[in-house]
Design a protein around this nucleic acid. Sequence first.
DNA 1: CTCAATTTGTTCGTATGTATG
DNA 2: ACATACATACGAACAAATTGA
Lengths: 253, 253
Amino acid sequence: MGRLKKTYKRSNIPLYLQIASTLRRRIETGHWKPGCQISTIEELEREFEVARVTVRQALDMLQTEGLVLRQQGKGTFVTKQIKDKRWLRLEICLSSLLETIVDNVPKFIDVANPPPPRLGADDGEPADEYIYLKSVQTRNKEPYGLVSVHLAKRVFEMAPDAFRSRTALPILSELKDVTISRAHQTLVISSADMEAAHLLKVHLNAPTAEVHCVVADDDNVAIYVAEIIYRGDCIKFDIELLQYLSNENGKRS
Amino acid sequence: MGRLKKTYKRSNIPLYLQIASTLRRRIETGHWKPGCQISTIEELEREFEVARVTVRQALDMLQTEGLVLRQQGKGTFVTKQIKDKRWLRLEICLSSLLETIVDNVPKFIDVANPPPPRLGADDGEPADEYIYLKSVQTRNKEPYGLVSVHLAKRVFEMAPDAFRSRTALPILSELKDVTISRAHQTLVISSADMEAAHLLKVHLNAPTAEVHCVVADDDNVAIYVAEIIYRGDCIKFDIELLQYLSNENGKRS
DNA sequence: CTCAATTTGTTCGTATGTATG
DNA sequence: ACATACATACGAACAAATTGA
């Protein structure tokens, strides 16, 4: 068994899906640009070491997605560039984060048995009581984030109607009687479980970003504890490495 | 077709794999802790709306991985916790980034036909000539990153031996005759293609972080252009949202 | 216009994998 | 463990459209 087959077999995912992903990627990265003819079926047969029908099955998918056009006797051509949908820029300061999400429209979901908030060691003291709010965030009617928020009941009751209709964090930051002393966020890369896949309309195991966000007030009480699952394909992170310069960097004048 | 089946079918990935992933996740997140008995096969049958044999096939995988132990007449028990391997903290300033990667051991790969560097509009002017260095980064003998660097030939020749044996960025920052005027990084979430899957020893389509990093000198020439693919399961991002406060945030004193 | 080369389309038969009850 | 159905994958042969010589 060749090196290729070995990589294929590490997952038991159907071959034609794996090949489709690889080809889709070549279009996405601009390796094959729109209008350009891609490798012939026979070349792909040899490259991936698979049967003709399997290559065709992969191309069928791309054609259904409208990415390529196949013409008998001519070849297979790229019809459109995949547009990058990564519109959601992750932010590293609270004010820009708020700007990004203030206009989002949450669709709230009823939850029968709310889980307890997951608080880490550094996240502050738990509040006496929490209200649990779960919602799907959408943009252009496309879901992109699944948000589960534990909001201190005391805070929730300052503006219950607002919290039940808009995204919590901007409301929180506008409340006069609440002082935010700490806001901390952790991001890891994960993959969609059944619930997330269903609500975000992606494949099971599609790449996601899991964000854990905790806001503490001036008594160090965690008044806002959120678990957010974003679709991986809508997120982007820009970092200017020289912007927040610490002093140790002796190189720069 | 029920809601569950619909989510399953969105991908054509075999059912037993999807179920295995879901169960593996429950162990990973601590929903089922070590020693704990998991749902019986009959419960899982009902929960996932699949046949008995399909559940068993999923459990076979977990048992092969050593995650669970099945005992006839007793049940299925979790044997070990999956350890979180997210040791690599992404950094937002150059000095901490350098600290993180300075000791990394790259294993260089020969490349026949280097691709051209991918420079965006804001990335600066291209250098006259680049040296292409491709390497797999490892930690504890486990691969975690696939790095492709275009290094301006002029810079490379200042310390060719160093660049051929160590990670480029720390060397670059130590060179006396090079002034870094801009260092910019973009991160997106993606999934492993054939090559990355093979070199990073993950499944095809496993979640990854793709980092595009460009360093420009004081003539605004892009002297370092890197494409890095990290395993998604070794990355972590900590953000103190109040640390880098912009002025508009009127709420805080 | 015809011919040959190229490229995709179609169809068989067979084997194995996945999923059900 | 069995019978059944359907999906995946192979290899090979043949058909149809396009192109340029």
